[in-house]
Write a protein that binds this DNA or RNA. Structure first.
Lengths: 154, 154
DNA sequence: CCAATATAGTTCAATATTAAACTAAATGCA
DNA sequence: TGCATTTAGTTTAATATTGAACTATATTGG
C-alpha cells in the first residue's frame, strides 16, 4: 500500500506538527534574538532579567529554576553571571538560612531596556511583515497552551 | 500605513510576548518529549530520524545542518551518534568527494516508530485537553510564521 | 527532644553546541 | 592550464546544561 497518496495521518500527527512548528519558530527566533543581545547577555540571563522586569517580585534561585524549567545547577550558573555583571542582587533569605532571594538591580533594568531596544531592531522586518492585529490574534491560544503545559508538567 | 509603523512600546510588547509564549511552550514540550525518547535518542537525533521518516530524500550533512539551523560541527556529532546506533547510513557522495549522503536505515525507521509511540503516550493527557480541531486551527498561522522566519533569516 | 528525612544551593563529570581552525576537494578565472 | 577561492566535513577549545554527589539548614515523627 503506497503511502504517497491520500494520506490519512493519525490524530497524533496534528499534535506532533504543532510542536514541530513551535520548535522551529523558537529555534529561528532564538537565533535572531541571541545575536541582538547586548552586554554579553545569553538568552538564559535575559530571561531572568525579563522575568523581574515584568514586575514579578524577588524570589529564590530554586523558584527561578522551576519557572524556567532548568536545573538548580544551571540557575546557579546563570545567576553567577548576572551577579558578576551587577544585574541582579542576591541576598540571604530572611527566615531560611539555606536560601537566597534574587532581585533585579537598577543596572539590570537598564540592561534589560537596552536588550529590548536591540531586539526591536533585530525584529523590525518581522514587525513589518506581521501586523499587531495578526499577532495579537494568536496570543490567547498560545497562552492557553502554555498555561496548560505549565500546570500539567509530566 | 499599518499600525506597526509607530514605535509605541506597547506595540513591540505584542511581538515580544509572541516569542516568549512560544519559547515557554517549546521548553515545556521539549522537556516532556526528551523524557519519552527511547534508545537513548536525543531530540536532535530524533529530529534527523523524523526528517527522513517524513519521506524526505537522502541528503548531505550540510543540508541537514541548515535544515535544523545547527552548525556543521553539531551535525557531525549528531550523525556520529546515529551511525553508531545503526539508525542512519552514511555513504560517500557520488560526484563530490568532499561530501557524503545520509539516509535512514531500517533500524532507524523502527526506532523512529518506537519514539512516536512513546511520544503519543507522553502527550496523551495533552491530547485529551486539546481537541484536534482546536490544534488544527492554530497550525496555518504558525506555519506562516515559521515560513517567514525561515525565508528571512537575519 | 532528636534522629531521620527533606530541602536550598553548589560543585563536578559528562554531553551538546558553537565559532573557528583545519583538511581535502571542487570551482573559477586569468 | 594552474593558482586562488570556495565548499564539505572534522576537530578543537570554550560554554551551557544536566544529573548526581555533596554541604548546610529545616522539618518531621517517635
Amino acid at each position: 500500500m503506497s503511502s504517497n497518496e491520500n494520506k490519512n495521518p493519525p490524530d497524533s500527527a496534528v499534535y506532533f506538527r504543532l510542536f514541530t512548528e513551535i520548535g522551529i519558530i523558537n529555534q529561528l527566533a532564538s537565533n535572531r534574538a541571541e545575536r541582538a543581545m547586548p552586554h554579553g547577555l545569553t538568552m538564559s540571563q535575559f530571561g531572568v532579567l525579563n522575568h523581574f522586569s515584568r514586575g514579578l517580585p524577588p524570589k529564590p534561585p530554586l523558584e527561578l529554576a522551576n519557572a524556567f524549567q532548568v536545573t538548580k545547577g544551571a540557575m546557579t550558573n546563570t545567576l553567577k553571571q548576572l551577579e558578576g555583571k551587577g544585574f541582579v542582587d542576591i541576598v540571604p533569605h530572611e527566615n531560611d538560612k539555606r536560601s537566597k532571594v534574587v532581585s533585579i538591580s537598577k543596572k539590570g533594568r537598564a540592561a534589560h531596556q537596552d536588550a529590548q531596544i536591540e531586539l526591536a531592531k533585530q525584529f523590525a522586518d518581522f514587525s513589518e511583515a506581521f501586523s499587531i492585529e495578526e499577532i495579537s490574534a494568536q496570543l490567547p491560544a498560545l497562552e492557553k497552551l502554555r498555561i496548560w503545559l505549565d500546570e500539567n508538567r509530566a
